[in-house]
Computed example of a mutant assay.
Amino acid sequence: MSEKANLRNLVIDQLEKLSKEDYDARSYELAKKLFQTPEWQAANCVGVTLSRFPEVNTRFILAEANKMGKTVVIPETLYPSRTMQFREYEKGDLLIEKRFGLMEPAPTAKLVDAAQIDLLIIPGVAFTTEGYRIGFGGGFYDRYLATYGGHTVALLFREQSGHFFSNEKHDIPVQKLLVD
Rank of each mutant, 00 (worst) to 15 (best):
M1P: 08
S2E: 10
E3A: 09
E3V: 04
K4T: 08
N6Y: 09
L7W: 02
L7T: 08
R8V: 12
N9K: 15
E16G: 08
K17Y: 04
E21P: 03
D22Q: 15
R26I: 04
R26G: 03
R26W: 08
S27P: 00
Y28I: 05
K32R: 14
K33I: 00
L34A: 01
Q36M: 14
T37F: 06
E39I: 00
E39F: 02
W40T: 10
A43S: 13
C45L: 09
G47N: 07
V48Y: 05
L50K: 03
F53K: 15
V56L: 02
N57G: 01
N57V: 02
A63R: 12
A65C: 01
G69P: 00
K70T: 07
T71N: 06
V73T: 09
V73W: 11
V73P: 04
I74K: 03
P75Q: 03
E76K: 15
T77R: 10
Y79L: 13
P80A: 11
S81A: 14
S81F: 12
Q85S: 08
Q85T: 13
F86Q: 11
R87Y: 14
G92V: 01
I96P: 01
G101D: 06
P105D: 01
P107R: 06
V112I: 15
D113C: 11
A115L: 12
A115T: 10
A115G: 05
I117W: 10
I117S: 10
I117Y: 07
D118P: 00
L120D: 01
P123R: 05
G124V: 05
T129V: 14
G131V: 01
G137M: 00
A146Y: 13
G149T: 13
T152G: 12
L155G: 07
F164M: 06
F165D: 12
N167A: 05
K169T: 13
K169I: 09
H170L: 08
H170R: 04
D171M: 03
K176L: 03
K176S: 05
L178H: 00
V179T: 09
